[in-house]
Design a protein around this nucleic acid. Structure first.
Lengths: 214, 214
DNA sequence: TTCCGCATCACCCAAAAGTGGTATTGTACA
DNA sequence: TGTACAATACCACTTTTGGGTGATGCGGAA
């Protein structure tokens, strides 16, 4: 399998180095390389490339906006960011824009090639320092905890089934218990959640992350 | 620089393979390997290891809890998860517990070694498929753009009220329309969302962020 | 203009949801 | 060894819901 690649990179020498590096690989073929991505949509359309290496800091529309545009029209094209920036904003903006990977320019060539293969295999390669930022971001997020509603395991299980859209009867069938028992459980659940209907309970369960996850 | 490593891994053969692999590297020295991490704090204290390779599924307290404990007492020890699990919960739990990297067991040895070096250099290596989950998580969080259900403004308004826990009657009162009209709207909404109950609609609305307000 | 989508309302009817009891297990706990 | 409670079940009853059918007015598009 040979993948057609487009490179967007405004540094001419680096752009040419990348071309050489990638064309050297049997699996890759550079079908276009450009110093800006203002005409990215046209170029992607014309070349039918499957993979894009995208710099961030370029004249005209930046790489992040480029990703957004390309992904909007060609959601299946894989895009790997390749940049010197490791600040949180660029990273998260790129990810949200739809990038499939984020590699810093200090990535060794062999690693770079491997990462591009990874992305074509459905993975999302990330330089370790970028990943570090992501880890920190996660840890800083306020962890929504199961706000002591004192639900028993059985109650959580039944609430879970309700959230999944099951009717009383379906819950009863799936739990091998009587309809009335389901009713009773839900009645207790509603009391504990201080609600009085299934819709409210579902809303509260989802907003407060009450899940049975193992 | 030689780093002292502890391995927690309940599969004996894999544990021994890891020992051989890591001891083969000039930079690494395995100073302990165990089939469970119940005594992790003691072992880390005693050996003064700087790096830990941690399985998740082990008898006794699992790897995630192990990470939590170790990080609480030895925040500077680096911990890399090494597991077959690529489900969202384990990944995010591990990250939140304080893991510094997350590698799947199918990682090739050379890559594995490189990743451990990366983590000692301050990075957070992550297998591409793990990173993919993280990417998806990011994209699902802030995205509020899910217009795909073709709800009219009025329908969104009424669905919103339903999500807030209002009954048909209450919605009717708040919108100054008849109960039957509310019923009709919700009927249409259910059809558009491909559901057939209020609870399902609420779940779908919340999961797809159809809501307008914060 | 005519037609269509949207919002509105009405009526019938069956099923589901929700409320209030009572009661029997089994288990954990002090 | 008694108490507490979760889980189960049954009964009676009311309210809410959801499905179906149909109709009206209104504004914009064909």
């Amino acid at each position: 399998m040979v993948y057609d690649i487009i490179i967007f990179e405004d540094n001419k020498r680096l752009r040419q180095s990348l071309e050489l590096l990638l064309n050297d690989e049997a699996n890759f073929k550079v079908v276009g390389s450009f110093a800006h991505c203002d005409d990215a949509l046209y170029e992607v359309e014309k070349s039918q490339a499957q993979l894009i290496v995208m710099d961030i800091d370029m004249p005209g529309i930046g790489g992040v906006e480029g990703v957004r545009q390309i992904k909007a029209y060609f959601p299946d094209v894989r895009i790997v960011m390749h940049t010197v920036f490791d600040d949180d904003n660029r990273i998260f903006e790129s990810i949200c824009a739809g990038a499939d990977g984020y590699l810093l320019k200090n990535t060794p060539p062999s690693q770079f090639i491997q990462s591009l293969k990874d992305v074509m295999d459905g993975g999302s390669p990330m330089s370790p320092f970028v990943a570090k930022k992501v880890f920190q971001h996660f840890r800083n997020q306020p962890v929504k905890q199961n706000e002591a509603f004192d639900l028993t395991d059985r109650e959580k299980e039944i609430l879970e089934l309700l959230v999944e859209g099951n009717s009383y009867k379906m819950i009863a069938a799936k739990c091998f218990i009587a309809n009335d028992t389901v009713k009773k459980h839900l009645h207790n659940i509603y009391a504990k959640l201080h609600v009085n209907s299934g819709t409210e309970a579902v809303a509260k369960a989802l907003k407060n992350n009450i899940t049975q996850r193992k």
